[in-house]
Simulated assay, not measured.
Amino acid sequence: MRVWQILKRKGLCSTALNHAAILGPNLPDVWIPPNTSSTMDSRVDVQTATIIDGKAIAQDIRSQIAREVCRMKASIGKSPGLAVVLVGKRRDSQTYIRVKLKACDEVGIPSFIAQLPENCTEYQLLNVVSGFNDNPLVHGIIVQLPLPQHLDEEKIIDSVSPEKDVDGFHPLNMGNLAMRRREPLFIPCASKGCIELLLRSGVEIMGKKAVVIGRSKIVGLPTSLLLQRHQATVSTVHAFTKNPEKITREADIVVSDVGIPNIVLGNWLKPGAFVIDMGTNPIKDPNSRNGYRITGDICFKEATKVVSAITPVPGGIGPITITMLLSNTLDSAKRAFRFP
């Protein structure tokens, strides 16, 4: 049974959402792992870190979102709506879309999906986006990335209305995130989820040293900007950084989104650091049902002996990121309906 249906049965639809408010150039990295080896003693196998349960945090936030969706339906008879645009038949993209649509269904957010063939023209894709921009039932639009190479990704992202850009990638939203005293309409979901996780875990961000490994427009760049908004001292480690392990070892907060399995070893990390692993890397595993398993950028086994807390992969930041998409869509509908 969906979350919003359970809440309706229990009479909780009118309960207001109450969670901590947060502040509300694509540089491709070609990573070459440094020639370093771990100095951790492999004979010692003592886990000291707290393993963050991202699924539990996500479920708690989704329950709050579902209550707000119920309250909106009961008060004004309207619901938030999310539109998804999928080009081609990439298996990973199809999987991500299924997960997002299932999450929408759980909290009572209607979803709309437009599927285009791999060889669609730019004009056809822009026309679909334009239709969702003009649709009053749609309050959030996501174009599933990556797009086929013949399509101009930046042009497509720019075509999404900033008022419905729940991915937070439009230059207006990204630019406002980068500028002091300006508020973006939406914050990219992974970065928003990162800060939400830190706040809910009781981590003091102000004045702390943070290192973000990777500088993609989807995760690294907006996460760095958002951490600075929360008054952290932020360093960005990328493919051309010298001594990345030394810089990372000084950080109280480490966020990694590199795309190389286990690149961050235990000796990269400061004892007691808080680590968020945003890497999602498939590794061949003949014992797995699918022939592969998913792992992160952080060497989990080593990190747990050093840090104070860490997100696992899978089951860490991923579910929270999808939940932030629901949160952004709800915020968009509230803004459109002027719903308190």
Rank of each mutant, 00 (worst) to 15 (best):
T36I: 15
R289C: 00
G266P: 14
S308Q: 10
P188C: 03
N26T: 01
V87E: 03
K301I: 02
L147N: 08
E183L: 14
I247A: 02
M206G: 11
S14R: 12
Q144W: 06
A251E: 15
L172D: 06
R182F: 07
N133Q: 04
D152E: 14
T95V: 15
I276P: 02
S38A: 14
A239Y: 01
P110F: 07
D277M: 04
K192M: 09
V313C: 08
S327Y: 15
G11L: 11
Q115C: 13
T241G: 09
I253R: 09
C70Q: 06
P25N: 09
V255I: 15
Q47L: 13
I32N: 00
F186V: 08
K242A: 12
I142R: 02
S308T: 02
P184R: 09
G193W: 11
D60S: 15
P33S: 09
I247W: 08
I195P: 12
N135Q: 04
P340Q: 11
K192T: 00
G77P: 07
V212P: 03
I213S: 04
M206A: 13
N287L: 11
G318D: 02
I283T: 12
N176E: 05
V3K: 11
G175V: 01
P148G: 00
A114R: 14
D29I: 01
R90Y: 00
V313Q: 12
D60L: 11
A66N: 07
Q47E: 15
D29A: 10
V306C: 11
E153P: 08
L199P: 03
K192D: 04
A333K: 09
G140F: 01
V84N: 10
E118K: 01
S93L: 03
